[in-house]
């Protein structure tokens, strides 16, 4: 190790000491960070998301019985991502789009050569032939059930991208249709914006829920949340597949 390495180690240790002080819940450092596991949820914003009473309409929520709650998703994480903080999510998928576009810009769209010299073995090819539709179906299932079970657009899109990665691993000449990917991606992004604008027109705020919520816990419930999550799934799946395809064929 050289002098520069020791200096970096020293700086990192000092910084670590400061960060540990900030996260120590036993001393009063003005940051109001509690000890691990002793968070009082009633002091946080999340309690309104859990009780679904952001608009001060306090009601008891019961699975499979409550009709038309404020946000109809049984999965609280989904109701935050696709409803309460959907504007944040719109920003996030914009960042994802810019990163994917930047990668395509840096690498160039030449399709000049493949990463692999030959096809994979016979067993791998047959295995991929069986696995690919099953993985694709699993991705679609995860996306559609995003408001009931763990999962949703981000996870399902990533599963679909993994299925396409398997195709690339098995066949050396496998190519994706980049025009089709671009059309899918633009369609998803523009539909997301249009749903937001419809909410702005009908209820006066961007990306608000303008459909009936239905009974919490059933498949056809939660208003615009499943639609938004399906669009996010299409967009994430297309973008991650595009990233993989660009890296392999660079």
């Amino acid at each position: 190790m050289r002098f520069r390495d020791y200096l970096s180690l020293f700086l990192v240790i000092i910084l670590g000491f400061i960060i540990f002080q900030a996260f120590d819940g036993t001393i009063d450092n003005g940051l109001n960070i509690k000890q691990f596991g002793e968070v009082n949820l009633s002091e946080r914003t999340s309690i309104h998301y859990i009780n679904k009473d952001v608009n001060n309409e306090s009601t008891q929520i019961i699975y499979n019985e409550s009709k038309n709650p404020e946000s109809g998703s049984a999965n609280y994480v989904t109701s935050i991502i696709a409803n309460y903080r959907a504007l944040d999510t719109l920003g996030e998928i914009t960042v994802l789009f810019i990163a994917a576009a930047g990668l395509a810009f840096v690498l160039g769209d030449h399709n000049k050569n493949n990463a692999f010299a030959s096809d994979a073995s016979f067993i791998v090819k047959i295995g991929v032939k069986i696995l690919f539709p099953l993985l694709f179906l699993l991705g679609i299932y995860i996306i559609i059930h995003g408001h009931l079970t763990p999962g949703g657009g981000f996870q399902g899109g990533a599963v679909i991208a993994t299925a396409i990665l398997l195709k690339f691993l098995a066949y050396k000449d496998y190519k994706l249709n980049h025009t089709g990917l671009t059309i899918l991606e633009s369609f998803a992004g523009i539909s997301f914006l249009i749903i937001g604008l419809i909410g702005l027109y009908t209820d006066g705020s961007f990306l608000t829920n303008f459909l009936a919520n239905g009974t919490i816990g059933t498949l056809f419930s939660a208003g615009v949340i499943p639609i938004i999550y399906i669009l996010i799934g299409i967009k994430v799946g297309a973008e991650l597949s595009g990233i993989i395809s660009n890296l392999i064929n660079a």
């Binding site: 763990p150 981000f154 996870q155 990533a158 993994t162 993989i244 890296l247």
Partner: peptide, 22 residues
């Protein structure tokens, strides 16, 4: 569970393969 799913699919699967392609 949501985050665990995402981290398992993306962190362990996609990130590793992207590095290996590089």
């Amino acid at each position: 569970p949501d985050v665990a799913m995402t981290e398992a699919i993306i962190g362990a699967g996609l990130t590793t393969s992207i590095f290996i392609f590089t």
